Simulated scan of single mutants.
Amino acid sequence: MKLLLIEDDPSLQATLVRTLGRRGWEVATCADGALALQQWEAVQPDVVALDLTLPHVDGLQLLTTARQRGWSTPVLILTARGTVGDRVIGLNTGADDYLAKPFDLDELEARLKALSRRRLPVGAALASDSSLSHVSALGSLRLDAESGAAYQGDQVLDLPPRELALLQALLSRPGRAIAKEKLFDWVFPGALDVQYEAIEVVAYRLRKRLTGTGVKLVTLRGLGYLLKADE
């Protein structure tokens, strides 16, 4: 797996490069916020670990720009800003997970591995669950199996990372319910401080975004969610 580490602490950067490298990660680094987007585009990482306090360009500003460009690479924020307010701001900006410093290296790797699943082809990423099969289209919606991007006809659906992750999972099993527990693990991989009910918020937002696509997100009480084409 390929990691882009955007971190300006040389000691921490060296430790993570050494430790994760020994565990099979290919780690590229950047210590300057002004150069990070260029590095991000060049490396095409599976996951990004992003410090918030960077020289020249703040990490949140960097993340905002990346999401505005449509870059859906999963992002794990690493920072000493550990308050609830800071976590909320980071997640609302487009981060996928948040780990406050100091952190345990095993926990860091576990979270990175969970996030990197989103860069796998949809069918491969879900293949470990034998109950899910690879179906890439329903009605006017389809998924690019390589990038995971969602399309309505020929137009890319501009979806935030969590709604895209939920759509990927549901499109793998159209017309059949997937339990909330499985969807939560897919949408919030490795999250330790996210309430279970958060999956309901993501489902609500995705349902609104699917209006007019000819596909419905249906809630089945006690069973989970499914996608079905309008009749």
Score class of each variant (00 low, 15 high):
residue 180 K to E: 14
residue 109 E to F: 11
residue 221 R to C: 11
residue 36 A to Y: 02
residue 39 Q to M: 12
residue 181 E to N: 14
residue 215 V to E: 01
residue 214 G to E: 10
residue 217 L to C: 06
residue 38 Q to P: 08
residue 61 Q to H: 11
residue 111 R to Y: 00
residue 48 V to R: 05
residue 6 I to A: 07
residue 19 T to V: 13
residue 221 R to D: 03
residue 83 T to R: 13
residue 164 L to F: 06
residue 176 R to I: 07
residue 130 S to L: 11
residue 178 I to N: 04
residue 88 V to M: 14
residue 3 L to W: 02
residue 73 T to A: 11
residue 141 L to A: 09
residue 176 R to N: 04
residue 23 R to P: 03
residue 20 L to Y: 04
residue 10 P to W: 07
residue 121 P to A: 12
residue 76 L to A: 00
residue 197 E to W: 14
residue 40 W to D: 04
residue 150 A to I: 07
residue 163 E to H: 10
residue 101 K to R: 04
residue 64 T to A: 15
residue 43 V to E: 01
residue 112 L to N: 02
residue 140 S to W: 12
residue 41 E to T: 00
residue 124 A to K: 13
residue 122 V to S: 06
residue 188 F to S: 13
residue 93 T to S: 11
residue 215 V to D: 01
residue 35 L to G: 03
residue 58 D to F: 12
residue 138 L to K: 10
residue 4 L to E: 01
residue 46 D to Y: 01
residue 67 R to C: 05
residue 166 L to Y: 06
residue 72 S to H: 15
residue 182 K to P: 02
residue 224 G to T: 02
residue 162 R to Q: 15
residue 124 A to G: 11
residue 189 P to Y: 13
residue 163 E to N: 09
residue 137 A to W: 01
residue 77 I to M: 03
residue 176 R to M: 02
residue 229 A to V: 09
residue 207 R to K: 15
residue 23 R to A: 12
residue 143 L to C: 08
residue 98 Y to Q: 02
residue 142 R to E: 01
residue 174 P to L: 14
residue 96 D to W: 10
residue 193 D to Q: 10
residue 141 L to R: 08
residue 194 V to A: 05
residue 1 M to K: 08
residue 180 K to S: 15
residue 9 D to S: 08
residue 71 W to H: 15
residue 99 L to V: 07
residue 157 L to A: 09
residue 48 V to D: 10
residue 216 K to Y: 01
residue 110 A to Y: 00
residue 20 L to V: 09
residue 59 G to E: 10
residue 52 L to Y: 04
residue 124 A to N: 14
residue 25 W to A: 02
residue 204 Y to M: 08
residue 16 L to N: 11
residue 31 A to N: 02
residue 128 S to E: 07
residue 106 D to H: 07
residue 69 R to A: 04
residue 127 A to R: 05
residue 85 G to W: 05
residue 173 R to V: 09
residue 125 A to P: 01
residue 128 S to N: 14
residue 22 R to V: 07
residue 130 S to G: 03
residue 90 G to R: 00
residue 5 L to V: 08
residue 104 D to V: 06
residue 185 D to C: 07
residue 128 S to D: 15
residue 99 L to C: 01
residue 32 D to W: 02
residue 52 L to V: 05
residue 30 C to V: 03
residue 230 D to C: 03
residue 149 A to T: 11
residue 173 R to M: 10
residue 181 E to R: 14
residue 153 G to H: 04
residue 201 V to T: 13
residue 147 S to R: 00
residue 161 P to C: 06
residue 84 V to K: 15
residue 174 P to K: 05
residue 86 D to F: 12
residue 213 T to N: 04
residue 180 K to F: 04
residue 55 P to R: 05
residue 17 V to R: 14
residue 156 V to H: 11
residue 212 G to M: 13
residue 146 E to G: 10
